[in-house]
Design a protein around this nucleic acid. Structure first.
Lengths: 138, 138
DNA sequence: TCATAGTTGCAAATGAGTTGCAATTAGATT
DNA sequence: AATCTAATTGCAACTCATTTGCAACTATGA
């Protein structure tokens, strides 16, 4: 659980002004360690009156600044989550449940790939998502 | 290079009627083994007069039927490619160049993940894309 | 050849995400 | 603490990928 001061520091450290809207948006992510779409955040922040446009703009600039990262979980809309801490997801293709995992062991694979590649000599990022059916749904 | 008959067979084998539009769409994929968006196919098939809506509908139903699969390469629109033959992509984050690779060695990782998972006991699919900068762009 | 379910094309709708702009405000400066 | 200014917000209007309704068409099986 992050205090409000921590969030303010994060925002400042990335060179943004710490507006109540941004702190509210960031608090959603820090309270729930899972991906959120703009619309989901909008609903969670209804009471604060934060505009959907502000949420879109904040998500985009936080992504550029490295605070958040974009995740593709084959949902209809784009999702974001806190950027710190490398991890991946297992998604239930029926109910949409999302579980995390950390060790993707991709260094070896990546090295092998790069050594064989004609055009790439290094990899900066990767995306890896697993899809299955969870116990409840199977 | 696939003959038209082959394409017709593929379409039939999946339970679809072999319309000229579907054969044309499929031929784009079989002639170029790389991902295409609906719009790209539309442009390639301008001369045939195939409607964009038909392309969207065909892509969607071919995906459901397992002829094509959806790929997320962080482009603005969704892309598809032939489903047969398991492989992944390396994408240049500057020019968008795409290169394939086959051996992802994910079985070991997947097994480990599943053995640790609280909610999942098996994985049906996975998505893995690598992102870097190609020689030309670096 | 005929019947018909599956398919197509057009037009209109949807919906996520973006943009222009005037009003507001966080935070630096005095 | 009052002031200044560039960053930020909210509203309305827009864009653009994708979807849907529907009447006309056609691939295929009988």
């Amino acid at each position: 659980m992050q205090s409000e001061l921590d969030l303010k520091k994060i925002v400042h450290d990335h060179g943004y002004k710490a507006t109540p809207q941004r702190l509210a948006i960031l608090s959603v992510f820090s309270k729930n360690h899972r991906p959120f779409s703009a619309e989901e955040i909008y609903k969670k922040l209804k009471k604060t009156g934060t505009d959907l446009v502000t949420i879109y703009r904040t998500l985009t600039s936080f992504e550029k600044g490295g605070v958040l990262k974009r995740v593709d979980l084959r949902k209809d809309s784009v999702q974001f989550e806190l950027a710190h801490g490398h991890h991946h997801h297992i998604v239930c293709t029926i109910c949409g449940r999302v579980e995390d995992f950390d060790d993707c062991d991709l260094e070896t694979v990546t090295k092998k790939i790069v050594s064989k590649s004609a055009h790439f000599k290094s990899i900066r990022e990767h995306s890896l998502e697993l899809f299955g059916v969870c116990r409840k749904c199977s």
